[in-house]
Design a protein around this nucleic acid. Structure first.
Lengths: 340, 340
DNA sequence: CTGTTAGCGCGTTCAA
DNA sequence: TTGAACGCGCTAACAG
């Protein structure tokens, strides 16, 4: 491999083709006022030199780059993967490119700063718009549009996408109470996010609807991670009057419950019913297959792209807050409550 | 939210602070030849205006950006996640930033083109160096350094990182043959990659070492995906003289085997032993916990960053091809062969 | 210590 | 239809 220390510029192409830089520029941008012969020749030289114009310079000059930025809280979670997949698929139909940044891996404190500095970074002429997923930061400095997936409670009203979290959680709870469960534990998500609050609300509403009083002891504060959920589940399962079912705020947390249950010698669903939220790929593969609330994460990614794209094109959004319907998916992780 | 259509530039800061742009630039880059008072004032104005310098312009001018690019084949696989995690962690200690691009989601044919266009894009002044993971493309045009994780067979000798795949696979095979297995199925990885070939070789060497002839019928061609592996496993398990053990080229493929086994009514490990490769988080959570070969993926990500960083600093690499040791991790998915 | 000047690579006028 | 000149936002060289 030859590592050409110097990049080839539009100038090199112009020289090699015997034309001026502006002509090359015209060819690059498919302007139609170029003689076909010139066009052909320049094209050929471009290929030969394997020239590719500099995103930096292009963006700086023309103030748009056809690149969309995506800022994710982490890379460990399936949720993020699926978002990425949706985003990626939608964008490939748009003839735009995608640049991703991850703010994870740092301290909680720094994440917000990272997020903010990254929207600034991406905005420095290399990105036309940015999608931020489950932000820790509440505010961003940007001159390009921003769309938020699952916004922070404190966020000003950026355009955003959210699922019907409360309704989904409620459906799950109705299912559980319908099976006869009355001691139902709950493990929350990252409570600074709108989604986590809505799901918790759905849990509470579900109890109320079934005439079951809310027992704060049955609510563990999680953060959408396996580890945290595992800790919460351990605590719940060691309660004197332990719950017969646990509703976890996302599938990862349900996985934590599985672990804790296994450790406690409890068989799911015989001894403990479990419901998750998200319906990512993993949930169908878990043993037993996890009953969960589908929030069509991939679709969320797709919609995010559509929204940001409209914003970039200065089109109006039909609604600033886009709502995605959730849906309960029943699998094998729940059973009627055992009386013995 | 106010969306300032016009970004604030270094000029605005200079004007507001009553100094020249170069002074602002000095402050930004922490040059030490600035009077403390001036420094303080400029800093303050920067904060007030919430100014953040443009990566594009900066990169174009100074020819380095402190940003490293990462190009990944997909986002669906845990492998990629873990790589990202390792990369992310290593980079946070370096005071550099990371930009990720995913070439996945497209047709096989296009992936290579995507990869190539992306190294060109990232190289256009916005990235100091690039890491490419399991490339489909074999060649890249770039003036900045490139490091490859798990290179393509056809790749020219870019600096790269690879695990001791053959040795790891051999260890797994020795373990299986040690348990008495003689009909051992194998599901390959993406055969255009060095890793996949080496693992297959380890499988074959393992058989040979145990005096077992190689039966091509027992080798299914996978691609590191769950789906493909599932298909292969189905075929293997429906063989008249079906294998008593299946070695899958990665953990995802092992998951596919689990599915096929379940469908066929086979209990792991009683009726079928399974070994994977990678040891990603998932493998410990599978039921039964998967015996697999750890290839320290997170460490690979870390090393990739170290390598690209040296290259960026024009330091010499100790070795162009970095080798990471693999190690067999025994869990619950294998048992001695049953004679009945 | 600070300001002035000259580009980085590119797209976009405006003339020719 | 093409080319020359200008400026995007920034840093580095050189003056002062």
């Amino acid at each position: 491999m030859k590592r050409n220390r110097k990049a080839i510029t539009i100038q090199d192409v112009a020289k090699a083709a015997g034309v001026s830089v502006s002509t090359v520029s015209r060819v690059l941008n498919n302007k139609d006022d170029v003689a076909f012969d010139t066009y052909k020749k320049v094209k050929q030289v471009i290929d030969e030199l394997r020239y590719s114009s500099s995103l930096a310079a292009r963006g700086m000059r023309s103030h748009h780059t056809n690149v969309i930025g995506l800022i994710m809280p982490d890379v460990a979670s399936s949720f993020c993967h699926v978002i990425m997949r949706g985003v990626n698929r939608a964008i490939s139909k748009l003839d735009k490119d995608l640049l991703i940044y991850t703010s994870g891996g740092g301290q909680k404190e720094n994440i917000a700063l990272h997020e903010q500095s990254y929207v600034a970074l991406l905005n420095g002429g290399i990105t036309d718009g940015i999608i931020v997923v489950t932000p820790t930061a509440t505010n961003f400095v940007t001159h390009a549009p921003v769309v938020i997936v699952d916004p922070n409670n404190e966020s000003p009203d950026y355009p955003s996408i959210c699922a019907t979290n409360r309704e989904g959680a409620l459906a799950a709870m109705n299912y559980l109470t319908g099976l006869g469960h009355r001691r139902i534990g709950y493990i929350t998500g990252r409570m600074e996010l709108v989604s986590a609050n809505q799901r918790l609300q759905g849990y509470k509403d579900g109890l109320t609807a079934a005439g079951i009083p809310i027992d704060e002891e049955l609510i563990g504060i999680g953060d959408y991670s396996v580890e945290r959920a595992y800790q919460c589940a351990r605590k719940l399962l060691s309660l004197p009057d332990r719950p017969t079912a646990i509703f976890a705020a996302n599938d990862m947390s349900a996985l934590g419950v599985y672990q804790a249950a296994k450790e406690a010698g409890l068989i799911i669903p015989r001894d403990l019913s479990v419901v998750g939220f998200d319906n990512l790929n993993d949930s169908a593969l878990m043993v037993p297959a996890l009953t969960t609330v589908d929030q069509f994460v991939e679709e969320i990614g797709t919609i995010a792209i559509e929204m940001i794209n409209k914003l970039i094109n200065d089109e109006k959004l039909k609604c600033k807050q886009h709502i995605v319907q959730t849906q309960l998916v029943v699998r094998d992780s729940c059973s009627p409550v055992q009386h013995n």
